[in-house]
Amino acid sequence: MIPLPGSRVITLLLAVLGLALAPLRAANKEINLFAWSEYFPQSVLEGFSKETGIRINYETFASGEEMLAKMLAGGTAYDLVQPPDYIAEALIKNRLLVPLDYTKLPGVKNILPEYLNMAHDPEQRYTLPYMVSTVGIVVNTERVKEPITGLVDLFSPRYAGRIVVVDDARELVTAALYVLGYPLNEINAKNLAEARPLLAQWMKRIKLYDSDSPKTALLNGDVDLGYVWGGEAARLWAENPKFAYVIPKEGAHQFVDVMAIPQGAKNIEAAHRFLEYLLRPEVSKAISDEFPYTNPNGAARQLLTPEQRANPASYPPGDRKFGTFRHLGETGAMIDELITDLKNAR
């Protein structure tokens, strides 16, 4: 039923095996990359290997929490990880990341200043931004004629049974906190108690929760509205502009996926070379071509087509209020329990 402890034993055995074999491998001839699924174009990985002769082992995860769990389980010695900002913050706090050597990363000048020295890494010592996105509202404008400007419109009773929401307790709670006017990182018993009736109402109207591919239900016509990752919305818009993207007027969660080198990395040199490669405008542009998130690389943005830059989900109008997640300690469990309880109550 629960695969983890069993797989832990196996990963342990594999780790022992890997350790035994480690001296046989030349250092910096390969990189163990642990990153989100569907986030690196194959051409980018192959291009780097062809240029440098360094092989990339791309292992994927589907949520920041999963990444953290697997990284801490200590199976593979990863050389590069790709946590979301708030997980990166926790890793930095727990001294689990290796500081970057900026002498090897001259391309950092390409990053737009607003994506540097952010709250999760104020000194910009450990992380480089990879892609940025927001969580916002997708509207199938063929089916929904009324204007949707914010979360209150989205969760109105009129759309009951027509909404897909990412299956993420914290995103739901954040939406409620925005509507109630609380800062999105003020998670405490009092605020959650206030959010509870609001969420209970909303959740009755949600048709399904899907973090992995919320666009599917929208494309299939099973729902008409979504509260989804900006990247998903960008791809929907690229497919059919009837899918409009709206940054909620109450405010939106903006997240940055960063690249970092964890403690225990064996190929730090090679990892830096890959990071510098990713900072190149044409490489970064190739990533945007396939995964239309908000690209923090200013030089790369210059290379995008006007159409790409016009995608409202990738580059939303700048007059909205954005907030980023901070690392939550123990209070995370309160969110989880609240949402489980509310789902259960249906």
Partner: peptide, 27 residues
Amino acid sequence: MGGAQVPLIGNVIQNQFFRARNAPFGA
């Protein structure tokens, strides 16, 4: 197929391990 709407015990356990990062409770 259920849109993650009605949690079953398997979902809760999986959730504890990979989302809530509460392996002891999941265990």
